[in-house]
Structure formats: C-alpha cells, structure tokens
Write a protein that binds this DNA or RNA. Structure first.
Lengths: 197, 197
DNA sequence: CTCACATTTGAGTGATCGCTCAATTTGATG
DNA sequence: CATCAAATTGAGCGATCACTCAAATGTGAG
C-alpha cells in the first residue's frame, strides 16, 4: 500500500560511506550528500534522521564489512596467517591503485573532537571489534598449529592493528609506491617469523 | 613609533596550535580562535591573514618543535637510541597523563580532504621532515656504534615513524593504560634488539 | 476511478560560517 | 599637548550550515 521509496537503502548508505570516508564528517555537507545519495534533504532526514545518525550508520556498515571479510575468508578454509598477510598487502595495493580513501575508522578516530561523544564512542567500539576479529583470526592460527601454542592472540591482534594503523597513516603521507609496499611487506614478514617451527 | 600590538605573536600561535591540534581544522571556528587567542577577528586577520594561513603557521610551529627537540637532545650528547626510546615512551606517558591531543601532523594528514591542497602538501612535507629528523638520529647512532654499520637509517626511520603513527592511533582508541604502555615498550624493545652486539 | 496515505519535494528557517572595514583607540614623536 | 600612523574593535557582510514542513506526488486497495 501507498508509495514506495525509489531508492535502495543500502545503496544510499554505501554512497554515504564512500563520501564520509573520503571527506570526513565536518567537511561533508548536506549538499554533498544530496548529490551522492540522489536524495533531497527531506528524504534524507525521513530515512536517516540526521547527518550524525547517517554517519553512524555508514560507520557501522564499513566496520561490519571489514569483520565479515575476515570471518568469511576463515570459513572458506583459507589459512589464517595468509589471510592476515593478504590483508596488510591489500592496504598497500589499494593505495598504490590510487583508490585510497584511508580507513574510515582511523579517519574518524582522529577527526572527531572530544565533544562528539556519540561518534567517538562508536568509532572506538567498532575499532575494538575489528581488533577482536583479528584476535579470532590469530586464535584460529594457533588452533591450526600455524602459530606456537603459547602465543597470546589478543596481544598479537593489538600489535597487528597498530601496524595497520601505522601503515594507513604512512599512506596519507604519499611517499613513493615502493616505500609503502616495503612497509606492508615488512609487516607480512614479521608475521611469517612468528610461525610455529 | 605608533601603537604596538598588545599580544605576543608566538603566544598567540601557541594557543592556535593547541586549539587546532585538539579540534582539527574544520571543527575550529573563528569564535573559538577569538577566545583562545584573546583577539578580535580584525586583529586575527591583520596578523595572520586567514584561518588557513594561521593553521599552516601553527602546523609549522608544531613540527619545528618536534624536530628541535630531537636535535637538541642530540647536541646535549645523549645517546641516540635512548632519545628515540624516550620519545616513544613519552607518547604513551602523555596519553596516560590525559594531556593527549594526539599528533598535530597525524591528525591533519587524516582530516584534510583532497581539495585542501595547501594544507595537505604542507602536512606531508613536514611529516617527511620529521622522518628525516629520525633518520639523522639513527645515523648518529650508527656513527656512534650503537647500531650495526650496515643499518639503513632511512628505512629504520620510516619503520619507526610508522610505529609512532600506529601508537598514536591506538591512543585514540582509549584502550586501558597498560595496553598503550605495553605497545610503546614493545617498540622500545624492538629498537633495543637492533643494537650492535 | 477514487481515496488514503506513505513518501518526496525544495523553498525557506535561524544559526553560524569565515571574513571585512569604517570608526576608534593607542602610544611614540616633535 | 597635538599629531599621526599603527593597531584594535565589533557590527555586520554574503555564503553556507544542518534542518523543517506545507505542498505535491506516486501507489496500492476498494
């Protein structure tokens, strides 16, 4: 009954995610969103309540995708350590291909001011969840005997997330291509060195 | 002759630096600056030309301080590797003391949009200069025999800067205090492990 | 076809943005 | 003390911000 929305909600969210990821929260105006979502202000507010809420939904979407990607590859039976190594190499490759918008979570963590409690808290929570996904992956590696049994998966996950963070900021410096790939490769090598003998 | 400014230029710049470092470029309004600098809009524009130019000056001031700190400690004759280890520990300590505003350069690199060429380019240049300062410090360590003679100081500097970047983003996640200190300590330990035998 | 209602529309809200400039204040000089 | 140039002042500029709502529009049911 009655009229149906002409747009697909998830398609709109994807457009918002891309826009916010590239421009950040403050620099993205409703005018930008109107163009990207192909929606008029009234529709945007009817569908997503506010700019802030739309941002939160886009952030969730991004983080869920990151986690799902890891979980999915595990279920496909890929070797856990190789998944992680491919993950860090993919970041460098994405940057080299100039499709780089950075990590939405990292961008948000560093952009948000102390006043914006809601966004800040959400970004922190999601970042911790991503770290947990890394931990689960390393746990998988331990169970499969890829890593020594006495490895601390949580500590390793935090170390790895820090490497990812570092690489992502390094990408923002736009050094030459080889340097970024070397940096990613060096992290992959560090992971290789942790393998059970 | 004639009237003198009632404010000290560098004091004003320091206030601007602190404000921009904590709130970022977009979220800082002229009203905020008026309060922090205790200057009226006309004076701000007479002295600093524009919000963007004031931001660039503040960014320069921050980066120059970082570089000077390293160079100064070297001149005092401190051991190069200990300077670097103290540097990474200081980041964790600053965060633990809740005086954390993050690194102005990192914040800027990740906040700035592709359109803001001027700010982006400056931040990238300054970040590269800081990396050079790290490289000089490591070169010092090589010359002093603290590191093996075949160490590549530029590669080591980039690795170290990536660790600093990673730690700074980790700080923005507000994990518990011990985790941050552990992460910093682990970087310090990695440096220790590179010492010449 | 008509009605009921979910949905879109877009001009317009008040607030705030970065910024300007005519008027005023200040202080060193003669 | 009078002069004058440098500097501050703050009301207010046009533009843009996030957002609203009365009116127009599309759609499924009867």
């Amino acid at each position: 009954m009655t009229r149906n929305p002409p747009y697909d909600r998830d398609t709109a969210l994807e457009a918002a995610e891309t826009l916010f990821r590239h421009k950040g929260y403050h620099a993205t105006s409703l005018k930008d969103l109107e163009v990207a979502l192909n929606m008029r202000p009234g529709s945007i507010y009817a569908a997503f309540k506010s700019k802030e809420n739309l941002f939160l939904l886009a952030l969730d979407r991004y983080a869920r995708k990151e986690q799902a990607s890891l979980a999915c590859q595990l279920e496909e039976g890929q070797e856990a350590l190789q998944i992680v190594q491919a993950h860090i190499r993919a970041i460098a490759a994405e940057w080299a291909a100039e499709e780089f918008g950075g990590c939405f979570l990292v961008n948000t963590l560093l952009e948000v001011t102390p006043e914006q409690d809601t966004i800040r808290d959400r970004a922190q929570t999601l970042a911790r969840e991503v770290q947990s996904a890394f931990r689960d992956t390393f746990q998988h590696a331990i169970d499969a005997g890829e890593l020594p049994a006495d490895t601390d998966p949580a500590a390793l996950a935090q170390w790895y997330q820090m490497q990812v963070f570092g690489l992502r900021v390094l990408c923002s410096m736009t050094l030459n291509c080889a340097d970024i790939i070397d940096a990613a490769e060096s992290v992959a090598q560090s992971i290789e060195n942790k393998r059970a003998a």
